[in-house]
Design a protein around this nucleic acid. Structure first.
Lengths: 206, 206
DNA sequence: GTCTATATTGTGATAGAC
DNA sequence: GTCTATCACAATATAGAC
């Protein structure tokens, strides 16, 4: 399908790396060209403008972790069955691309206009998602707790540790990155248990 | 103590607003001057360089929520007693300054050199923090679970919802910001209960 | 303290030779 | 497809008048 020259590949790879790290405004076309080891004008040749190059990278970034999230809100199966596999998938993606969460969140924060695009690419219909939440409320989740609060906690526990990786690694794991990763691997099994505990709560808020 | 002219105040206020929103590289000195309604060269007069102005803002940002976090790792009292008040304080700070989490996380991500400064200003000694964690392991937390995993989940559940605010608000609350805030208020009571449930887990990982 | 004028460098983008 | 040369413009920062 996709016909990509070697040069184009190198551009995307360098652009991804630098945009993740320094953000859109913090990265110049020259930076990307230098990192890729090519002439700066080639960026314009392949992607016309910086905006278009960034869009390509942003789309790539979302494609790396959004599908796992979207599925959680979509499936007709009881939410409970999906949780463990979902968590495993999300954490696995985070370990592979640890810089993406902070990158996407910052970009959404500074450019809210992109939100509709994000939601659309997630394939999520907000209305459908909300209806589903309301159905779950008296369904498989035999809990009095608002299922949205569970979802929020679930996503938080999977994604936030990576967004805050440098601090957590330094303060809680003495700067040892292997120890941090090991802890995240453990979370693949741990977070589902935590979520289960949370779902078992009765009458949390009267 | 602090002697600040009105102009200086206006600069800091505008700089805070814009840096939170657009980041350091995404905000020009001109942008800040325009927002503050003053001449651009006054920024240089009061803060010499953009870097120094940004540092001032970054310090301010941390001062707004770091103390509440630092206390969690410091106190000699059993961790369990502190949790509810801690959570309340953190969420309250997040509601007041919702853009700070994504801002600080992105800045730490793109400029890891700042981490030591952050840790120092938190007043945290990582060694002390880790020792404490190990002590708690067989202490007040009567659980087999690694207390660091609890801390991570606790912070995640408090901070992440705000970092991901635009998405969560749109997908889970139909774009209604009041509903989002209301849900966060509920979390002040809800998250402590969730954490308690998590701490009660037995033999989560053999 | 506040302004105008200016120096200097960086940046995105294009035209045109090869 | 890849390079050199060049453009227009925006950015930070400083000097100096008021």
């Amino acid at each position: 399908m996709e016909r990509h020259t070697e040069t184009e590949q190198k551009i995307i790879a360098s652009a991804e790396k630098l945009f993740y790290q320094k953000g859109k405004a913090g990265t110049s076309m020259q930076d990307i060209a230098d990192d890729a080891g090519i002439n700066r004008t080639l960026l314009n040749y392949y992607f016309r403008t910086k905006d278009q190059l960034f869009d390509a990278v942003f789309r790539t970034a979302m494609g790396r972790f959004v599908p796992a999230l979207a599925e959680l809100l979509h499936s007709d199966m009881p939410i409970e069955e999906y949780i463990p596999v979902m968590i495993d998938r999300v954490i696995t993606a985070m370990i592979e691309y640890p810089q993406i969460p902070a990158f996407v969140l910052q970009e959404l924060n500074s450019n809210p206009d992109r939100l509709p695009q994000v939601i659309k690419e997630m394939g999520i219909d907000p209305d459908v998602a909300m209806k589903k939440m309301e159905r779950e409320e008296r369904g498989a989740l035999k809990s009095d707790i608002d299922p949205r609060q569970v979802i929020i906690s679930l996503l938080s526990m999977c994604i936030f540790p990576f967004a805050a990786r440098p601090v957590i690694r330094e303060v809680l794991y003495g700067g040892d990155d292997d120890a941090f990763i090991e802890a995240m691997e453990q979370r693949k099994k741990l977070v589902p248990l935590m979520v289960r505990q949370i779902m078992l709560m009765k009458n949390p808020i009267p």
